[in-house]
Design a protein around this nucleic acid. Sequence first.
DNA 1: TTACGTGCAAATAATTTGCAGTCCC
DNA 2: GGGACTGCAAATTATTTGCACGTAA
Lengths: 167, 167
Amino acid sequence: MTASRPVALSKSIEPAGPSAASGMHRSQLTGCHWNNVKSVLRDVRLRPTRQRTALAWILFGMGDRHITAEMLYEEATKAKVPVSLATVYNTLHQFTDVGLLRQVAVDGSKTYFDTNVSPHHHFFVEGENELLDIADTDMVVGKTPVAPEGYEIARIDVVVRLRRKPR
Amino acid sequence: MTASRPVALSKSIEPAGPSAASGMHRSQLTGCHWNNVKSVLRDVRLRPTRQRTALAWILFGMGDRHITAEMLYEEATKAKVPVSLATVYNTLHQFTDVGLLRQVAVDGSKTYFDTNVSPHHHFFVEGENELLDIADTDMVVGKTPVAPEGYEIARIDVVVRLRRKPR
DNA sequence: TTACGTGCAAATAATTTGCAGTCCC
DNA sequence: GGGACTGCAAATTATTTGCACGTAA
């Protein structure tokens, strides 16, 4: 369930996250619940603080997501999680450093973070700033180039730019 | 002759461009010389002003290039072409709009412009902020995904991220 | 307690914009 | 001459940083 139609992901998500840092309901988790969030954080050596835990919950609590710092900040705020934008940025980078997130480079000025860290590519809807996963079975890179002397390939990113069909 | 080894392109280029807007020497042009620059500009309905012509000369006067606004501004300045950074940005976007340039999305915060507008992909050297062309014969996208309902594929961009090989 | 986290505000960085003055056709 | 083009400075947008205070272990 990676590829889908271009819907505003951010809007389709009701911030049913944790109310503050204690409300431990579990609506539509992807297999991990509240306590797991904390243990995951401990596993990567990040202290499970109130905001970190809450942000992790929002990020990983419901399927794959593509999110910007600003979006995450708004969601956290709506979910009544007190957190500052600076902390959101810090947290996103910390999560990226430990491999929980992946930074996606599209062309906009904004940086997107993808909760799906397994190899896959993206659709990008121009104008709408909408990112969508492409199922890896739908996109196959046939021939890959040889890395220049002294370098090795770290990753291959494919962005399929979409445009709204005329008429 | 698109793919090559990671060399600092910007450094390997001696700003042998036009001294002011009159010096019409032609060192290593790619087929078009000073007068052609002007007619190309006219073709795309852009008035061949001093700075526009000079910037076009720098951009297209010597093979394929990957350049940022800042880089172009510095080159122009070094080449004694009086131009402001704002004008460089404007010009780059105007050129992109008429199809003379292509904007390349890598991950950095900076925007790169590619003078090679034909379909091809890129190597991106992390850390060095170095962009390199990949010959289209070296990179083949096997299977392309179907665009979601109501959308069509505008372009497919592939970025092969390189990392300096350890040891 | 005590180092690690967090919030806030100020600092950067890249890019855009408003507007008065300049230059091509 | 007149509208397109430029330059400069100020405004925006996205992100980072410095530092006093808060909090998990």
